[in-house]
Write a protein that binds this DNA or RNA. Structure first.
Lengths: 230, 230
DNA sequence: CGATGGCTTGATAGCGTTCAAGTCTAGTGG
DNA sequence: CCACTAGACTTGAACGCTATCAAGCCATCG
């Protein structure tokens, strides 16, 4: 048997980290490693939600759409994040890979059963879900009440928190895992507005854009002020 | 001792409904009935989150605000809904009464301990939190991608689902527990836009407004189309 | 070297905001 | 019973932010 959990890259940070070695046995049998290519979709909104998963590497988007096809990205998932929606027959949002992605996938029903028998894991999932709710609500404030410039500033600080590497002069730097179109779908804007606000932040010296997909935060304090965080 | 739980109006619908009579004893000691006047705030964003609660009657808003005071209502709570944020020292959103409100309030820390000992209640809370997350994400689609008219149509259908009474001719009718300003804060709009869209929906025959605060849904199907629900 | 997809930039338009009256309703006191 | 008031609501006019439409740029890749 392959020792999936034994050398798991995110074991200590995922909800499985709560389990003892013996308990992990159960999940070890349940879980399957799976790779998703950029653009591939794991769960479709409106379809039966067959699986849950832990994200091992890469970035996933969770997205909803209107009847006529307008899209809104309602969440981003990073390594060690929990993926999916236990206890719902039908997924309300789609889950799609923004980069190459590795997952540890569980069939939903057996995973739900496993939750019942591993109170600590269930507890961790509750805490994560509560945190995700707080995050979603913060994003609601962004979508409903912030201007384009404030939205972008908030978003870049968010990304820096997840992907940021300390670089020269104490600045933070990272590569965008999203295209402008995807950023627009996160912020409830259009590509053009995202692009314009990006260059504006650069011109004002708050950020630098060495190349299209790289971002360096030059003035974190000013960016935080721009973000209008409470 | 007062039999708080014995004659609880929402016992069978709240997360306490999962408990046996003996288990309820624990909560019975913990819970206190509390009344909130319209406009009173139970939890302040940024302050220590001292309590959780079950909502017995009335409507609560959960709201976030930017540094400069713009407000976004990120959730509405109805009778039997769970109130508060276990496992967080500090509340990220405020909780305020939109109407006269009755609550069954628990001090947070002891409530968290009770959760640990009552797996079924914890499980129910997890399910509710997951549902709340789905709801928040649906609202993100509304805020980011829907027009003012679509926002209002969606919102009125939402309210009808919670408060609607079947009235003559099979139409659904209800009283708004929110002012126009509060509706605006839910939908990420201004008072004036809400008012204009309201009269527009009335003129088009989708709804009727017998008085300022009463709403009758005349053409549910058309309203659903307008709402652009997936 | 041309094609493609992602990105930027410019010009214009429109939706929703802002500012400003004005109306309606409920509650209060004469 | 009727002014009077205050708050909620509606309506109108003008503005501005962001969307829309339209080129054009730039890197990558065949």
């Amino acid at each position: 048997m392959v020792q999936i959990c034994g050398d798991c890259r995110v074991r200590d940070r995922s909800i499985c980290g709560s389990l003892s070695d013996e308990e992990l046995e159960t999940l070890n049998h349940l879980g399957r490693n799976r790779h998703l290519h950029k653009g591939e979709t794991l769960l479709w909104a409106g379809e039966e939600a067959l699986v849950c998963a832990n994200l091992l590497s890469g970035v996933l988007k969770v997205s909803a759409a209107t009847a006529d096809g307008r899209e809104q990205i309602v969440g981003l998932l990073y390594p060690s994040d929990f993926v999916g929606r236990p206890f719902a027959e039908e997924a309300e949002q789609s889950v799609t890979a923004l980069t190459e992605v590795d997952l540890c996938v569980f069939p939903r029903k057996p995973f739900e059963a496993a939750l019942e028998h591993h109170a600590r894991m269930e507890r961790l999932l509750l805490r994560r879900t509560l945190a995700a709710l707080d995050e979603a609500r913060a994003r609601m404030l962004l979508l409903g009440r912030k201007t384009a410039g404030e939205k972008l500033a908030t978003f870049l600080l968010d990304l820096a928190g997840h992907l940021g590497q300390r670089c020269s002069e104490g600045d933070t730097s990272f590569d965008l895992p999203l295209t402008r179109a995807e950023i627009a779908d996160v912020l409830g804007l259009t590509i053009e507005t995202v692009s314009r606000q990006m260059t504006k932040l650069k011109q004002e010296g708050l950020i630098d854009l060495p190349s299209g997909r790289q971002v360096t935060i030059r003035d974190r304090h000013a960016l935080e002020e721009r973000a209008e965080v409470a």
